[in-house]
Design a protein around this nucleic acid. Sequence first.
DNA 1: CATGAATGAGCATTCATTCAT
DNA 2: AATGAATGAATGCTCATTCAT
Lengths: 217, 217, 217, 217
Amino acid sequence: MVNGRLPSMTERRLQLEDMAAEPSGGPGGRGASTRDNLIRAAVRLASGQGIDGVSVRSIAREAGVTEGALYKHFSSKDQLWRDVYGVIVGEMIEEKQGILDSGLSTREAIAEWVRLTYAHYDGNREAFTYVLLLPHPFAEAIGEEYHAQGRLFERLIRRGQRNGEVDGSIRAALARTLFVGLLLSVPSQINEGGLKGPASSYAEDVTHAIVRALGVA
Amino acid sequence: MVNGRLPSMTERRLQLEDMAAEPSGGPGGRGASTRDNLIRAAVRLASGQGIDGVSVRSIAREAGVTEGALYKHFSSKDQLWRDVYGVIVGEMIEEKQGILDSGLSTREAIAEWVRLTYAHYDGNREAFTYVLLLPHPFAEAIGEEYHAQGRLFERLIRRGQRNGEVDGSIRAALARTLFVGLLLSVPSQINEGGLKGPASSYAEDVTHAIVRALGVA
Amino acid sequence: MVNGRLPSMTERRLQLEDMAAEPSGGPGGRGASTRDNLIRAAVRLASGQGIDGVSVRSIAREAGVTEGALYKHFSSKDQLWRDVYGVIVGEMIEEKQGILDSGLSTREAIAEWVRLTYAHYDGNREAFTYVLLLPHPFAEAIGEEYHAQGRLFERLIRRGQRNGEVDGSIRAALARTLFVGLLLSVPSQINEGGLKGPASSYAEDVTHAIVRALGVA
Amino acid sequence: MVNGRLPSMTERRLQLEDMAAEPSGGPGGRGASTRDNLIRAAVRLASGQGIDGVSVRSIAREAGVTEGALYKHFSSKDQLWRDVYGVIVGEMIEEKQGILDSGLSTREAIAEWVRLTYAHYDGNREAFTYVLLLPHPFAEAIGEEYHAQGRLFERLIRRGQRNGEVDGSIRAALARTLFVGLLLSVPSQINEGGLKGPASSYAEDVTHAIVRALGVA
DNA sequence: CATGAATGAGCATTCATTCAT
DNA sequence: AATGAATGAATGCTCATTCAT
């Protein structure tokens, strides 16, 4: 059961860049707040076992605090997952928005999109896995954010079609679908052991595949 | 935690074709065995909430029997999931093997593969979702079966490369990865509400995308 | 919960002498009835794990039949345990009664009692363990039979005291208590690994100890 | 199935002296910790029905808390039984060690041993029954502690044999076996209703019986 | 802020027993 | 006589959550 609201943009500004660097079991060094430690712990565990397999107890233990403490920072377990989601996806979206706002051609924009995405994956596999490769029980509850990246890409495609850079016969929703399928196929396979990392080494190949599949000039 | 063995080929011959036809809540009509009802109930629930979210209690109730009865047919919850998996994936693999054994060209084979896959999805969305779109906690335990379809496709690609039908520069593992990404993107998006309609209506488009992405003649 | 009646003398005449000879897992050879197989299986399992640890399912499986079949022969699990008890204890008591009826001196009678008891243990450790070394949840329900051997010994002691063969100052109930304690200490320790078998090799030592402890001439 | 470790000497220092004084059903008075209440409840129930017959549910109810609370104090039901065992047996062993360290003659030491043992039984029948009269499913897992009292007595006997106080022909293992058999026969019979308590009233008689049975000067 | 004890509902599983065949 | 499917209650244990300190 997952219900409720997402954290606002202002709430979510935590330092998650070095999430993967945090050693498991220790409550973290310099300025690591308990709240951040809990988020990091949750993502770490979820990326390994799936969201459903992670208990409040295990998150608290991994963060080095008690269960009670967790409830000082998050009103419920669901809210914790949603906060975590919002924090990570927010960063991703801002990057993608930057691509659209730049003057890049559709082809160059796609290349940049893939590069950034795979850099993200290589830099923080656990957070990436959490937000993009795991099924989210609260998918509908999220709505806006959940589909934000897809909608950004649809905008890119439609602009390309208007400019004549992209095959005009393909519908934007399908283009987005195929794009996401290709984009995530590599991280997904690396996680499952079917492909050897890093993801960045496949960026060029995947860009070509997307360009060809969507008929980009 | 999920461990153990998969059902053998001979054990798994149940009639699951009309799995989706079973009305929820009723113990099923004419010759529906309790075991089959349990399998159907399990798939139905898992496809809706994910595997982890389904309790033995809910499966039994959905099948119209008690929990004790379930354990007469499956030695554990894990074994139930694996039996279900084996039943469904077995059918799928046999179809795909048929494609390889026929004399179709690589391009025709891909078209047929997509057609069959989407027909399967449209015919039994729940079973398809269960085996192909849900993360399986027992992925490693399955091994063989789990990657069987991917390996079949790799064989198809390599044969095509030898024949000169497929771009020789792409590695088979990557080709398989991109293929699976494109193939499953449509059912996945339909489930998530981002795409409408029967998957079959996208078969041609997806086939084209695959052919172009992989450089098939 | 253990309630009900003991089997009558006529019901209990089964051949249990070769109980230990029955190979586990097989439904038994020549004339082994299902009922006998069930009793043997029950004793075998109880002597290894204690009565409480034995399930109806395990008894049936060990006897090579289904659980339903067990209920054709015994009205309940409790009744099974009581029937088993009656069968074994009946044999033991008849032997001891024979000692009293013979013309042996108290000292010789004790020696014979110990010899017979330890022969019984060595010949069928499982049955002996079941009736004499395991706590019986239905002890009170048995009443008569449960204390029959003790009462026989009390009679022996009182007769000895009348004859002047036994120290007259010791009360019969205490004499019986000490006697049983000494008699069973050896089989009990062998079962627990504190003493090496066979019990018969200790018969003489234990006889001496009893004789001295009770002040028998 | 019972596995795991025993509590260390330092862990086990609870006040169990007045274990029997705790009224059933009430959560206990002044400073009774939940953990102590649970231990007392467990012993109380086990001494009445045997260890196997006691459920976690019943222990929690008897202690006046929920099952969940029990698991805050004991990692499993098995560990609870072992903790309880360690607490009680630890006290008993220290007393017996004291006897060996004193300068008493073998005969006086035995008399003291019996006196202490029966005082223990009379003072806390339930705890005594739990540790000494009930079969322990985890007997092997305990090892050290389980046989500690027996080994202490063997030391006493061997010293007596060296001093010429004890019949040199009897082997120490057998002496220990007979001693334990005689010592426990009285509490055991009192529990079964064959003898009227208190056990202390039999201390002298049993001491004499032991002395005579083992040929102590 | 954080703890640690406690709750009560839920979990997967096993139990003794019944009954139509 | 025996089977095998089914029941319903009970098992040991984990869960998310609360709250006095």
